[in-house]
C-alpha cells in the first residue's frame, strides 16, 4: 500500500515537471518518467497475487500473473517509439526556430 502511494508521488512529480518547465527536451523526459511511474504502479499492484516467477513448475508457491507482463512490455516499447518521434520533431524545431523554449515556439504565432 505504501509502495503504491510512493509510485503515485512519482507520477505527480513528473506531472508537475511538465507544468513548470519550458524546455522541450525536459518535457519529453518528464513524459517518460510518467510512463515509467504508471508501469511501476502496475507491477506493484499485481505482486500480491503470487510470490514466485511465472514459470511452470518452478516453485511450489503460486506464480505471479503473467498476462500483465506482456501488456507492460508493449507499453514500454510504445513509450520508447513516442520518445523517438518527439525527439525527431524537436531537432526540426530547433533548426527552424533556433530555440527550445515552449513559450517562444507556441505563443509567438503569426
Amino acid at each position: 500500500m505504501i509502495e503504491i502511494t510512493l509510485s503515485f508521488l512519482i507520477f505527480l512529480i513528473a506531472a508537475y515537471g511538465l507544468i513548470k518547465d519550458t524546455n522541450v527536451v525536459k518535457s519529453i523526459i518528464c513524459l517518460n518518467l510518467l510512463q515509467t511511474a504508471v508501469i511501476l504502479i502496475f507491477i506493484l499492484l499485481t505482486r500480491p497475487s503470487g510470490s514466485s516467477l511465472p514459470i511452470h513448475g518452478f516453485s511450489p508457491t503460486a506464480p505471479v500473473d503473467p498476462l500483465p507482463q506482456a501488456l507492460i512490455i508493449t507499453a514500454i516499447v510504445i513509450g520508447a517509439s513516442i520518445t523517438a518521434l518527439a525527439l525527431m520533431m524537436t531537432v526540426k524545431i530547433f533548426h527552424y526556430y533556433g530555440t527550445l523554449d515552449w513559450q517562444e515556439i507556441i505563443e509567438k504565432e503569426k
Binding site: 527536451v25 523526459i29 517518460n32 515509467t36 508501469i39 507491477i43 506493484l44 505482486r47 503470487g50 510470490s51 514466485s52 516467477l53 511465472p54 506464480p63 505471479v64 507482463q69 507492460i72 512490455i73 514500454i76 516499447v77 513509450g79 520508447a80 520518445t83 523517438a84 525527439l87 524537436t90 531537432v91
Partner: peptide, 27 residues
C-alpha cells in the same frame, strides 16, 4: 525484485541504451 524478469530486461535495453542514445544525438 517483484518477479517480473522479462520486463526488467526490456526496461534496461530501452531505458539505459536506446533512449539515452537518441537523446544524446538530439542534444
Amino acid at each position: 525484485l517483484n518477479y517480473a524478469l522479462d520486463i526488467a530486461l526490456a526496461e534496461v535495453a530501452v531505458g539505459c541504451a536506446f533512449v539515452p542514445l537518441i537523446y544524446l544525438i538530439t542534444v
